[in-house]
């Protein structure tokens, strides 16, 4: 048999995809709307162990461990002639040092706060990326093998839970205020909130607006990360069969599967890194703004 041309392969794939959807629909039809299944249930947290240890905590600890082990392992065997992994880590390191910390902070601040900003980037990145590896953590829809109930494989991200981005955001928020007050003194720090050029009576209302904007930062910083990751996971979930389950049309699950693959690649390839980058960059910008006399 002669090898198929690219066009023929594409046509064959399209035929399998559409024909499969038609065949599955013909075989199973529609079982009516499924009111029982809640997609958000995938993100519900059950307490597994005392001290509030649940799936999100497991993911947090796994991500922390992965971050530490990877970075320390690489750091321990840094060679003069780097291999590919070391080159990649070095590239990330230089990117964090020069683009995230260096570009938004002056030299002294960048040197002092690079570990904080860099650790934030890596921690969030590993948390995000861990969220795209299927792990046997789904206690919501277990697999029953005989009498044994095993958790099914699922993708879950700790950062898709508001508490985790919020905790990090609050930490950043408090940190940059402390840095600002320690550098400039209490009065001068708050005075620096008012932009340069605002004089007299206008200073009052402008200061109030700035106060609000500072508080909004905690919400914007945390919700941006949380919502992006949650939305990505929900989209993958819906496209990978969730929609078919809800509407009771199994064929729909097959039909939307390619979209799930595309969303998955999009999330892994772009969103996970981009959101970690934005979080770390904004942290650096906030820290830089806190020590600037006026902004």
């Amino acid at each position: 048999m002669r090898s198929l041309s690219r066009k023929q392969i594409l046509l064959l794939a399209a035929a399998v995809w559409l024909g499969g959807a038609v065949l599955i629909y013909a075989a199973t039809g529609s079982s009516g709307k499924n009111e029982e299944f809640q997609p958000t249930g995938e993100f519900k947290l059950e307490e597994w162990l005392p001290l509030g240890f649940n799936r999100a905590v497991l993911y947090l600890l796994l991500a922390a461990l992965l971050t530490i082990v990877t970075m320390v392992y690489i750091a321990k065997r840094m060679a003069d002639r780097p291999n590919r992994v070391q080159t990649a880590v070095e590239t990330v390191f230089v990117f964090m040092r020069d683009q995230i910390a260096g570009a938004n902070l002056d030299r002294d601040m960048a040197r002092k706060w690079f570990p904080f900003v860099g650790a934030l980037f890596l921690f969030i990145w590993f948390n995000n990326m861990l969220g795209y590896i299927p792990l046997p953590v789904n206690d919501h829809e277990p697999i029953s093998i005989g009498s044994l109930e095993l958790p099914s494989f699922a993708i879950y991200a700790a950062t898709a839970n508001i508490s985790i981005p919020l905790a990090l955001s609050l930490m950043v928020w408090i940190t940059y205020h402390i840095v600002g007050i320690r550098r400039q003194g209490l009065g001068k720090y708050f005075a620096s909130w008012v932009p340069a050029g605002v004089e007299g009576f206008a200073r009052g209302p402008i200061f109030l607006i700035e106060v609000i904007s500072h508080f909004v930062r905690t919400i914007s910083l945390s919700v941006r990360l949380f919502a992006n990751i949650l939305a990505g996971h929900l989209l993958i979930l819906f496209m990978a069969g969730g929609l078919g389950v809800i509407l009771g049309v199994a064929a729909l699950g097959w039909f939307t599967l390619p979209a799930a693959v595309l969303f998955f690649l999009f999330e892994v390839g772009l969103v996970a890194t981009l959101q970690a980058f934005i979080f770390a960059t904004l942290t650096a910008i906030y820290l830089g703004g806190a020590v600037a006399a006026e902004h």
């Binding site: 240890f53 947090l60 600890l61 991500a63 921690f123 508490s163 985790i164 905790a167 990090l168």
Partner: peptide, 8 residues
């Protein structure tokens, strides 16, 4: 969970 986050 927030405390766990900060610890991790």
């Amino acid at each position: 969970l927030m405390i766990w986050t900060l610890l991790a």
